[in-house]
Amino acid sequence: MKNVTIVICNYNYERYLVAAIDSALAQDYPGTEVLVIDDGSTDGSRAIVESYGSRVRAVFKENGGQVSAYNHAIGLLDTDYVIFLDSDDVLYPSAVSEVMRLFDGGAWSKVQFRLDVMDRDGALTGASVPHSQPPHDCGKLLRGGWLYPSPPASGNAYRVSALRQIFPVPEEGVNRYGADFYAIYGVALTGPIATVPKSLGGYRVHNAGGETVSFANSEQLTKAPRAFNMRWAILRNLAMDRLGIELPPAFLDFSHEKATFCSNLYHAKLFSRWSWMLHHSRSYLHTIIANPFWSLKKKLGTLVLSSLCLVPYSPLSDFAVRYIANPLARRRVAGR
């Protein structure tokens, strides 16, 4: 049997850490190992980790950020496969068994799966991510600049040898966070990607609700576009230096573009909304019309919703922005 490590990188998440570790230990795949990397927590995380004794392998390091924690973990791995579980997320008991069925049947660099969206208390919201399934050859699309649909960090299982073609990643300065970006997209340049077509874990959204345009936990809406541009530039250098692959200077991704779209249109005056759409929406519209992962129906629906953001009645236009940005807003409407 091939062994798999579940790595839990933690920083000051004592409130959620027990649920994450318990879900890792509850896997029905016998060859599962659990490694906890505590990145210099100042809360009660260390005591929680130590309470598990020999059931988990624990590493306590000085705070260096998420990239530092990933670099450290990948250097320690002695299994062929790994799942990086965020310390506020959970895996369902069959997660490792399901991904290993695919790894055993093909030379995949990564196997990904959906995550059910939870609120901060762990209650399911009815939403799941991602909403689209990518093709196996995501690397070809990446070489054309397209970021493929992927779940957040916890929804990805990697072949360790593929990760080591990308990592270690520079961790200095502003590049302390976003390690999952390099894992998710960098690994796709090393080989094909497989998808388990069902949810195998829970993704905790701390600001869960349909009354906000924000959906991601780690970064503010206005900061995310700048961070992604920086990470793409670093990934380009890594791809060229380590794989001999030249990526284009800019990337295409609807999630990235909608963050820019929403930050400019939400609560904006009518003139400002129209001005942005007339003069700055080219990339946003391109990632809808030319999107290689979407059906025609989804493209048309998103274009119609985008047009509603320009109506003079601000409650309707702001609702349309929230509906585009936040999957939980859609579930709320569906449940009415």
Rank of each mutant, 00 (worst) to 15 (best):
L35F: 02
L316V: 15
D137H: 10
G155E: 04
N156M: 11
L270A: 15
R57T: 14
G105Y: 00
L163W: 03
T42M: 04
Q112P: 14
Q220C: 06
L278Q: 08
R242M: 13
R57V: 07
T190M: 03
T260F: 00
S314Q: 15
A250E: 13
S263V: 08
E219C: 03
S68E: 07
L200V: 09
E257Y: 03
I74M: 07
P149W: 01
P152Y: 04
A325V: 07
S307G: 15
R282F: 01
A69N: 04
E14N: 06
W108P: 00
D318Q: 11
P225N: 07
T222W: 07
A194R: 13
F167A: 09
G209N: 08
R159I: 00
R143C: 14
Y29V: 05
S306M: 06
Q27N: 08
G244T: 07
W146K: 09
P248M: 05
L296M: 13
R204A: 14
P149K: 08
F60M: 11
R226H: 05
L238C: 07
G31W: 01
I184R: 14
S45I: 03
D121K: 13
G244H: 07
S314T: 15
G122S: 13
L310W: 02
Y13D: 14
P135L: 11
S109L: 06
Y182W: 11
A259Y: 06
A208K: 06
L142A: 08
I166Y: 04
A183L: 06
P192Y: 01
Y29K: 06
A233S: 15
D43S: 07
Y81F: 15
P168S: 10
S23C: 08
